[in-house]
Amino acid sequence: MLHPAPPPTRSLTERVVARIRLLGPGLALCAAAAGLALAATLVLPTLSALLTAIVLGVLLRNLVPLSPRLEPGLAFAAKPLLRLGIVLLGLQLVLGDILALGPGMIAVVIAIVVGGIAATLLIGRWLGIGATQRLLIACGFSICGAAAVAAVDGVVDAEEEEVVTAVALVVIFGTLMIPLVPFVAGLIGLDDRQAGMWAGGSIHEVAQVVAVGGALGGTALGVAVVVKLARVLMLAPVMAVIGLQQRRALAKAEFESGADAPGGRRAVKRPPLVPLFVVGFIVMVAIRSLGIVPPAVVVGAGVAQTILLAAAMFALGTGVRFSMFRRVGVRPFVLAGASTVVVAGIALAGVALVG
């Protein structure tokens, strides 16, 4: 009996060309959007390139029909490029700067992250929101916005709609905090340093913190960024805890279903304890903290990080459909608002104690 000949194996060059053809249209659109967002910041320095990019993505998705040819490139930008941007974010952190905050403020940062996550998970349960959705919101609002959402997704493998919803909420509520924090800080009489500490401890995205710190003044900007980066550093231990819990839950499910028994079902693939890109982030922090990275490399990495994250934010923005909010309902918005209040409240109490 004659068997059909196997298809010819493609060469490496052919595979690369096919990959470029698949991803090229979407990535080109992301690059153009990132360039436009960066150009907007040159005209209006108070704008955030990341926020501008995600708004562009949302508007484009909801106002213009997008070709299916763009989807593979957009998906690539929304995950691998976002994760690479998070790795490069590690080069912006110096452990010495964070330790210089003092034990009191470091304890406040830990309280913000731990208390914010715990309270958001509890409120989300009361509201009847699914476990994965409330975890994405809890970490996004308590640690570092979209980067934390991406990190959680790397451990729990959330649904695309859950990830996009969490990112959209980070953008909406973080943007609302930009005018609100300076106004309230002035109203209650915080000085520049205290206002900066509160901004860094309460606002979701690094870019949003920079916008608020710049509005408050030079002293506030410096301390706001350091406090925010201290929260970013909490990404690694939090992901390790979530990863350990996920592995235990899956191991328990396997045992109860008999998957590990002879003849049982195939064991479920367990998530990594810490996603590989979070390990890369930690390595970059360690390298920068050793003082061996030339300043020009740090600046270049910062620019590359901004471009990658802007492209990723645009891609994530294209996943936001206005009809989606009708499906998810009002409860995630209520949870996002409550989480914002909790995180800001813990941060303000901490600043009052140690500031």
Results as ranks from 00 to 15, higher is better:
I20K: 00
L63R: 11
G214P: 09
V225R: 07
L99M: 14
P65G: 09
T318V: 06
P295K: 14
I54D: 09
L66W: 10
T41H: 04
A304N: 09
A211Q: 05
I242M: 12
N62A: 08
V114W: 03
F141Y: 12
V297C: 05
V279Y: 04
T9H: 03
L93G: 02
A107K: 08
P275E: 15
S11M: 07
R288Y: 01
Q92D: 04
V341L: 15
R327Q: 12
I346C: 03
P237S: 15
G24R: 02
V109K: 00
T175K: 02
P65Q: 01
P272H: 08
V206G: 02
G213H: 00
Q305F: 07
R231I: 00
I307P: 02
R19Y: 07
P80Q: 01
L127H: 09
L91I: 04
V341W: 04
I98L: 12
G116M: 01
G57N: 11
I287M: 12
A220K: 08
A296F: 03
A150N: 14
A34V: 05
F255L: 14
I98W: 08
V16R: 11
L50T: 13
R247L: 03
A75P: 01
V152I: 11
P72Q: 10
L89K: 14
R326C: 04
W126F: 07
V334P: 10
A185D: 02
D97A: 04
L250Q: 12
A118E: 09
D97G: 01
G280M: 11
V163F: 00
T340M: 15
E71P: 00
V181R: 02
V87F: 00
T340G: 09
A151Y: 10
G85V: 04
R288P: 00
G128Q: 14
R265S: 07
V87I: 12
L12R: 14
G96C: 07
V223P: 01
V298G: 12
C139P: 06
S202Y: 01
V212N: 03
T165G: 08
T120G: 09
A336E: 04
G116I: 00
V209M: 03
I346V: 01
A311M: 15
R125W: 14
F314I: 12
Q208G: 00
I346K: 01
V58L: 09
K252T: 04
A119D: 05
T9I: 06
G345T: 15
S339I: 08
V278W: 10
A296V: 12
I86C: 09
R19K: 06
A118C: 05
G57K: 06
A166F: 06
L229K: 07
A230T: 05
A344E: 08
A138R: 06
A336W: 05
G104W: 03
F183I: 08
V343T: 10
V171C: 11
E205C: 00
A119Y: 08
Q245I: 12
I137F: 07
L70F: 07
G24A: 09
A347F: 00
A18R: 08
L84Q: 11
